[in-house]
Design a protein around this nucleic acid. Structure first.
Lengths: 228, 228
DNA sequence: CGATCTGTTGATCTCGCTCAACGTAAGTGG
DNA sequence: CCACTTACGTTGAGCGAGATCAACAGATCG
């Protein structure tokens, strides 16, 4: 496990994160002064439902899952935060509480900006606000996609897509699943058992190859794409 | 049916629409000059998948449904646009095509602003950008909710929630469903047959009362809320 | 090394989808 | 205004994808 060599987390945020792209040097320095940073160990919660949502979180390093809990106790994964992603848009528009949970999947560095500071920053830095609108626009599109897929296509199809996307994201045909199957299951709106079965089934059909427990190889991307 | 008396659509947009709230008089006048307006008859499409998405649409008057079409031909309703709502955030961040459809459910007036003009406007008017961020934040929260509900709770529960929300939105316990059951079905990720059955079932259980074909009365909101 | 968590496999059940037939409204043109 | 067409809605019967329950097998970890 690589040790975090330096405590440059604030600068990391500012540099790494897409919403701060294209800002002037001076603006970036201002941002850096407003940011506070936190470290979370794997398994710790960045926030839980009911917490006051009064700041924007930016993931400087690591990985975290964001999920909601339904009334019946079932989890629904909403997204995986990767380095450079942010969350807490709920924080931006009103005094409200989080309705979701965020849990670190590995050791993770997070930067925070308070709602107040961030709103002020947007007023003073239109580029930032525009970047923010763009980022949220993408987020909306991604969520619409997720909603549509979950309700219109089969688990097998959703899993196939997930494998393809993961593979594409890592730019490898042989890749390690970044999530536990339990989490993949709630992400795809299904159960671990079903994931297990479908992976076996896809392997039997020769579309993927199981290398190790959570390492897979895409053998036939075209057929995976065609699953209804 | 009220006749649209005047062609003040551009001003209507600017006045009605939440994202233009809090703007100065001069800013509002600028906005009004950039807006073009269109009228659509019930059933006409505001845009379809594949169209170039190069402008923001604001619904000045009427109602429209936005939906995606899955590979297998199934519709998934994403949302209903009401007076004051906007769509086309995809248009805001890149040259891209629409991946969804928008169809007028009644006679509808729509205002458009081109991506270029709108981006420029946001640069010059930070308040607008901040409003936009807030509106998109709300949208994200709503979509996360929809995704979670669709995957974690039963059709009966989703339908019950839909009835409660609709009733609450209209502020009446006796209310007319604003959508055809076909559309409610795709909104809730199910089929018309199932909607029909579940409505009958809820009525039999005494939680709602069927007044006419698409008029209903909430009899027991508490029990409706409790359905898992 | 036990203990706890995650994954696999099998057996069973059930919700809601599909297909089909029919009823009801709503528009269209004579 | 009524016959005709075309959409929408309802009801029934049957089926199937996937959830659930349960038992076991690896992993992971203190």
């Amino acid at each position: 496990m690589a040790k975090l060599a330096h405590d440059h987390t604030a600068e990391d945020c500012v540099e790494l994160v897409t919403i701060f792209q294209n800002l002037s040097e001076t603006d970036l320095e201002t941002v850096a002064t407003l940011v506070t940073d936190h470290h979370y160990k794997s398994g710790e919660y960045l926030f839980t439902a009911g917490d006051a949502a009064d700041s924007l979180l930016i993931l400087a390093h690591g990985q975290a899952k964001v999920f909601q809990m339904a009334a019946n106790g079932k989890e629904q994964m909403l997204r995986i935060l990767q380095t450079g992603d942010f969350d807490g848009e709920a924080a931006l528009f009103a005094n409200s509480d989080h309705n979701s949970f965020a849990q670190a999947l590995m050791d993770t560095d997070v930067c925070q900006i308070s709602r107040q500071d961030f709103q002020k920053l947007m007023q003073e830095t239109p580029e930032l606000a525009v970047n923010m609108v763009n980022a949220l626009g993408r987020r909306v599109a991604q969520l619409e996609q997720q909603t549509t897929e979950v309700t219109t296509s089969s688990v097998e199809s959703r899993l196939a897509n997930y494998l393809l996307e993961t593979s594409a994201g890592l730019d490898k045909t042989v890749f390690t699943l970044p999530l536990k199957k339990k989490d993949i299951a709630t992400y795809l709106g299904t159960t671990p058992e079903t994931i297990s079965r479908k992976l076996t089934s896809l392997a039997k059909q020769g579309m993927i190859q199981k290398i190790s427990n959570n390492e897979f190889k895409i053998l036939n991307a075209d057929r995976l794409m065609m699953i209804d």
